[in-house]
């Protein structure tokens, strides 16, 4: 997608203000829904298949990434019914290590790029990082320059996304909006439209490095933007909530919201991902609890 496309006027939905009270009430209603038995097991299985198992620490080592990849391929080695996760998400420097370990598996390699998490490095550097990451990874998670967005330089943000999209070739591009720094639902909606129009394949809530990270109301705004964008342009965009999703209950809540706002066409790893580092074991514990009928101990599950 070129910068010229990004400059095309956005439809009115993109710029309308968000009804904050209505949105939060709807999100709270969705979060209170009770999912039981077969539906719960379906949701838990789907949550695993949609997980981007993430480690973005300064202390990451090749050994740690190897462990992460093993966990990604075999979340519960003793239970063959548990599927692998969707992807492993690491820093670009370690993407090659992940690539080696995941060569014969369906798990994809995702790398964060463009000066993660701040997005404040000079643009040439960010672009070069994205290009280098795309040589190894299947998917690129880029951050936008929130400073530019908040200063009103929307054109610059759109051009940068379009340039990164061009630089990473056919790689799957997830654009991180870092909604916790955008200062309100109106800006989340605007940034979502901007990113989608500029060529994002996925829009992602957060880096996980600042609070608040993913929240349900923010994710619902983004879902509505994706829905409206699909109506307006016919293009299908995916959603990735990330950061602070630690419990199976939270994951199910996001799946419920996706089902209600976007429909069950979006309940697939091609269109929905959960970025998380500690979610997986809680989901596995819930599945084991559904099967065995007793509450589980974290000691029985391997560290990622």
């Amino acid at each position: 997608m070129s910068a010229a496309t990004a400059r095309r006027p956005l439809p009115a939905e993109a710029l309308l203000g968000v009804d904050q009270v209505g949105l939060e009430a709807r999100a709270a209603m969705l979060a209170s829904r009770s999912i039981k038995r077969e539906a719960k097991l379906f949701a838990l299985d789907l949550a695993i298949r949609c997980t981007d198992l993430t480690s973005l620490e300064g202390a990451d080592t090749p050994g740690r990434v190897a462990t992460l990849c093993t966990k990604a391929m075999h979340p519960a080695p003793l239970d063959p019914t548990i599927p692998p996760v969707a992807a492993v998400c690491v820093y670009p420097a370690l993407a090659a290590v992940a690539r080696d370990h995941l060569r014969c598996s369906p798990v994809r390699v995702a790398a964060v790029a463009t000066g993660f998490p701040g997005g404040q490095a000079p643009f040439e550097g960010r672009l070069a990082e994205a290009r280098a990451a795309a040589a190894v990874a299947d998917e690129i998670d880029m951050v936008i320059d929130r400073g530019a967005f908040l200063a009103g330089r929307y054109g610059q943000v759109a051009d940068e996304i379009a340039a990164v999209k061009a630089a990473v070739g056919g790689r799957h591009l997830k654009v991180i909006l870092e909604t916790g720094e955008l200062g309100g639902y109106d800006n989340v909606r605007r940034a979502s439209w901007l990113a989608m129009a500029a060529g994002a394949d996925f829009i992602k809530t957060s880096t996980g490095k600042i609070q608040p990270a993913a929240t349900l109301p923010v994710a619902v705004v983004m879902m509505e933007a994706i829905r409206d964008f699909a109506w307006a342009t016919g293009r299908i965009i995916g959603l990735k909530p990330a950061g602070g999703i630690r419990t199976a209950r939270q994951a199910i809540t996001y799946l419920v919201a996706v089902n209600e706002v976007l429909g069950d066409d979006w309940l697939t790893p091609e269109r929905f991902r959960l970025g998380a580092s500690s979610l997986l074991n809680d989901v596995l514990m819930q599945i084991a609890k559904e099967h065995s009928g007793g509450y589980q101990s974290p000691d029985d599950f391997s560290d990622a």
Binding site: S292, G293, G294, Y295, Q296, S297, P298, D299, D300
Partner: peptide
């Protein structure tokens, strides 16, 4: 019963 089967 839930006490007895609680693995933690």
């Amino acid at each position: 019963p839930w006490v007895g089967s609680h693995r933690d």
